[in-house]
């Protein structure tokens, strides 16, 4: 028996919105410690790594480890049927063919159940080595989303250059070019508005806008985003999910041909 309950479906709704552009299907691995998803987009350029800890749920029970293949489009449609304040419960038997989503309104007067067929999927894990990154930047997630959106108008790729002084985003295209520089905040009263740079060595990397613009769909999950970069390795873009876990996106860089 697997059962996981969240007092408010809002978190799960936001998680689905944050992955639906990149993934068509994904395996949800459920164990005693929580729910994990690791899945690449079809082109194998980006990877979503989602971790929801069991202690972050209001109720969590997982008698046997389960790998449930889910269609992300269908799951997104189902979550859109829940109000943000509804309690959501995921339920499956051992060796399940289906998963049930149960939404209960706050006043307990409405109870909705949606059953979704699971799909058989080959599990393909990527071993991601522990990496010490040359630059780790924490910045407001809305600012990052804004910069990605603005610079996408100028080119297909954004170059991120990070040094002690700050972080510079730039894009160049047929019609012109653009760049946005953010300095490290001196002393920000509000943690959420801070730009913090932890730099060992300066880095300069180029990434496709299309993926960055999918990652920023996670913005409603967290006020800050963490970007970890080293030369010639994939970017890690991380959003904390309240007290329950995190979503990390990995993105392969563009390199000189």
């Amino acid at each position: 028996m697997f059962e996981a309950r969240l007092a408010q479906s809002a978190i799960l709704k936001k998680v689905l919105e944050a992955v639906k552009d990149l993934l068509t299907e994904a395996t949800f691995e459920c164990s005693d410690s929580g729910i994990q998803v690791q899945a690449m987009d079809n082109a194998h350029v980006s990877l979503v790594s989602l971790n929801l800890r069991s202690d972050g749920f209001d109720k969590y029970r997982c008698d046997r480890n389960l790998s449930m293949g889910m269609n992300i489009g269908t799951m997104t449609k189902i979550l859109r049927c829940a109000s943000s304040e509804d309690t959501v419960t995921l339920r499956a038997v051992d060796s399940p063919d289906n998963i049930i989503f149960i939404f209960e309104s706050q006043n307990k007067e409405k109870l909705a159940e949606y059953e979704m067929k699971l799909i058989n999927m080959d599990l393909e894990h990527l071993g991601i080595p522990e990496t010490m990154y040359s630059c780790v930047v924490k910045m407001p997630s809305q600012e990052f989303a804004r910069i990605c959106r603005d610079l996408s108008q100028f080119g297909e790729a954004i170059t991120i250059a990070c040094s002690k002084e700050g972080i510079k985003f730039s894009a160049a295209g047929d019609y012109g070019n653009a760049n946005v520089k953010l300095a490290q905040t001196a002393d920000s009263d509000k943690e959420e508005e801070a730009v913090l740079i932890d730099m060992q060595e300066p880095v300069k990397l180029t990434f496709a806008c299309r993926y960055l613009n999918s990652f920023v769909k996670a913005t409603p999950l967290c006020a800050q985003v963490k970007l970890s970069m080293s030369s010639d390795v994939p970017l890690v873009c991380e959003y904390q999910i309240g007290e329950i876990g995190h979503i990390r996106y990995y993105l392969a860089p563009k390199i000189d041909d």
């Binding site: 690449m40 082109a43 194998h44 350029v45 980006s46 990877l47 393909e124 894990h125 990527l126 071993g127 991601i128 080595p129 790729a157 180029t206 496709a208 390795v233 994939p234 990995y250 392969a252 860089p253 563009k254 390199i255 000189d256 041909d257």
Partner: peptide, 14 residues
């Protein structure tokens, strides 16, 4: 001109 790499260039399948 830059070329898009894939994650399998960096991470091993396990």
């Amino acid at each position: 001109k830059k070329k898009q790499t894939t994650l399998t260039n960096f991470f091993k399948k396990s």
